[in-house]
Design a protein around this nucleic acid. Structure first.
Lengths: 195, 195
DNA sequence: CGCCAATTAGGTCAATCGGCCAAATAATTA
DNA sequence: TAATTATTTGGCCGATTGACCTAATTGGCG
C-alpha cells in the first residue's frame, strides 16, 4: 500500500527498540507489534535482522549529520557549537538516564557479540569527533584538535554511563559545567555568559 | 563429587562469560561447556539464571573489595592510590578494549532489561566511588571529595567506552596522563615523578 | 480493465532458550 | 557393609527465536 513509508516505520521502530532494549533483546515480533504490521511483511522489506540493523545505522548517520548541521546553523561561533554538544546531555537527559548513550551502548553490545556492523556504529563516533575537532581547529587548536575532540567525546560518554548508573541529575549538571570550564581553558577564552 | 567447588567454578565461568558476551547472550549451555559439567547440574546449585547473576555480583563485590585493599596496602599515599586506580585502564587494557568496563557495561545492560539486580551492580560503582572519595578526603578535599571521586570514575568510564570503540592505545595513554595532571591540580601537589 | 508493488495472515522449520526432573553415581556416615 | 546423603547426569518440557514460504488480497496507476 504505502511501500517505502512502511519500510521507514520499520526502521524507526527498530531504531527506538534497539536503543531501549538492545539489539539482541529486540525480536521481530517486538518490531512488528510496534509498527502494527504482519510479521511476514518485513521479510518483504528486509531479508535478515542484520539488514535491519544496517538500515538503522544508516538512519542514525543521517540524523546525526542533520543534527550537527543544525547545531552549526544555530550557533555561529565554534564556542557556542561546543556548548550545543555539551547541552545534548541535558536535552536527552531522560533517555540517557534510562538507556545510556545510543552510540556508546550499541558499540559495546556489538563489540561483545563480535558483530560485523560494529565498525559502522563507530562511524557515528567519527561524525561527532570530526565535527568537534573542526570547532577546536576554528578556535586555534590546530595541532591537537582531534585529541581535544576525543577528550570531550570521552567525557560525554563517561557522564552518560554514570548518569545511567546513578540517575543523579545534579551530577550531570555539575559535570556539564566542568566541561564548559574546560572548553574555556583550552579555547583561551573568557568564560561565556553564565550557563 | 566436589560440591562447593563446582559451584565456585560455575560462578567463575559465568562471571567471565557475562563480561565477555553479556548477561543475556550467555546461555546455560555456554556456562556448562566452560565448566565441562552437565547442563542440568547447576539447577542443583542455582534455581535460576538470576540466582547465578546474584552470585556473580557477590563475587565481584568480594574481588573489588580485595582489589581496593591491595591498592591501599601497596600504595602508602593517597596520591599513589589514585594512580593505582588510573593504572587499571592500562592493566586491564586488552579486556577493556574488547569488552568494555565490567561494571559499566553490565549496568547498562541490566538497565535496558529493567532487571532487578541493576542496583546491586551499581553497588560496585559505590565501592570505587567511596574508596576514591576517601583518598581525596585524605588529600584535604573534604568538601567535594565525593564529587571529585565521581569525576574520576566518570573519566575512567569514558576512556573505557572510547577504548572499546576506537581500540587506540595512544588515546588511553594520553587520557591517563591527563587524569594524573588533573589529580595533581585538585590535590594541590607537585606532579609526581614522570609516569 | 489488467498489471504490479505492497500487504496480509498463516503456517513451518530447526535451533536455542530457561527451566525441570527422575535416575544414576559418588561420598559420607552409621 | 549397609544405609543415607550429596552430587551429577542426560534427557525432556514449553516457549521463543530468526528465517522462510505460500496463497490470498489490497489498491494505485497506466
Amino acid at each position: 500500500m504505502r511501500g517505502p513509508e512502511t519500510r521507514t516505520e520499520i526502521i524507526g521502530a527498530a531504531d527506538r527498540l534497539f536503543y531501549e532494549r538492545g539489539f539482541e533483546h529486540t525480536s521481530f515480533a517486538d518490531i512488528a507489534e510496534a509498527v502494527t504490521i504482519a510479521r511476514g511483511n518485513f521479510y518483504y522489506h528486509f531479508k535478515s535482522k542484520d539488514e535491519i540493523l544496517s538500515a538503522v545505522i544508516a538512519r542514525r548517520v543521517a540524523h546525526t549529520t542533520a543534527l550537527l548541521e543544525r547545531w552549526a546553523r544555530d550557533n555561529p561561533t565554534p564556542r557556542g557549537r561546543l556548548s550545543a554538544f555539551v547541552g545534548m546531555l541535558e536535552v536527552n537527559g531522560d533517555a540517557i538516564m534510562r538507556y545510556g548513550c545510543p552510540v556508546g551502548t550499541l558499540t559495546i553490545e556489538l563489540s561483545k557479540l563480535l558483530h560485523g556492523s560494529r565498525d559502522q556504529v563507530v562511524g557515528l563516533f567519527d561524525l561527532f569527533r570530526d565535527w568537534l575537532a573542526e570547532q577546536f581547529r576554528a578556535l586555534g587548536r590546530d595541532a591537537d584538535a582531534q585529541a581535544l575532540a576525543l577528550h570531550l567525546l570521552m567525557r560525554s560518554q563517561g557522564v552518560a554511563t554514570l548518569y545511567t548508573a546513578y540517575r543523579d541529575r545534579d551530577f550531570v549538571i555539575r559535570e556539564m559545567a566542568m566541561m564548559e570550564s574546560w572548553i574555556d581553558e583550552v579555547a583561551g577564552t573568557q568564560p561565556a555568559a553564565t550557563i
